[in-house]
Amino acid sequence: MTPRVLINACYFIVALLFILGLKGMSSPVTARRGVIWAGAGMVLATLATFAWPGMGNYALMVIALAVGGGLSWWSGKRVKMTDMPQMVALYNGMGGGAAAAIAAIELARGETHVPVVAALATSGGLIGTISFSGSLVAFAKLQGIMRKTFRLPAQNAVNIILVVLTILSGLGVAAAGHAATHQIVIFFALALVLGVVITMPIGGADMPVARRDLALQCFNGTRRGFRGIRAE
């Protein structure tokens, strides 16, 4: 049994734990048990991934895990219960940022010769980045840092132009076999601005965190599947 098969077997168990965990969280009686199962799945997924063949940079990896995980755990522990919504928004945005960073690496590395991979990387980068900056705005609003709702002059026109520009930029990046660095930077910059502009006018009480979250989860799941395919 090769390491890769073992790791994929672990991932299979992780998926099972996540599904059962989420199911547990949908009923008050089993909810606490559910999140613990999902937590176990997360730990297993992380440990199994360390064994992934052909990797380096382990020191960087451990440091990033420790710093990101540690700071986040600490902040989650001490925050007031009434401040939970903005923390969820913040953590969710970070996850989006992670997905976007992964996409950025794939695009920068020029792995986009296959159309499907290019499409996944570009759309994943787009959604992740919008989620990231949008969630930061959501956090600012919920935390009370941003009190006013900003409306730009001709907000609708600006939104439409921005969306069109971002999509065009994305298509350009995806279509190029190996996009130029400045092209990629412009694309992500546009997406960042778009995320901010979309969430600026919304009042603090209507933060649609969950929708972006779910879309991201689908894309991430699909991407992990494709990573497995490309590695074979």
């Binding site: 990101g68 995980g69 986040s72 755990w73 989650g76 969710n92 996850g95």
Partner: peptide, 10 residues
């Protein structure tokens, strides 16, 4: 960022 999402989220 990914670790922050996972740890904080949990």
């Amino acid at each position: 960022l990914g670790a922050a999402n996972a740890a904080g989220g949990y």
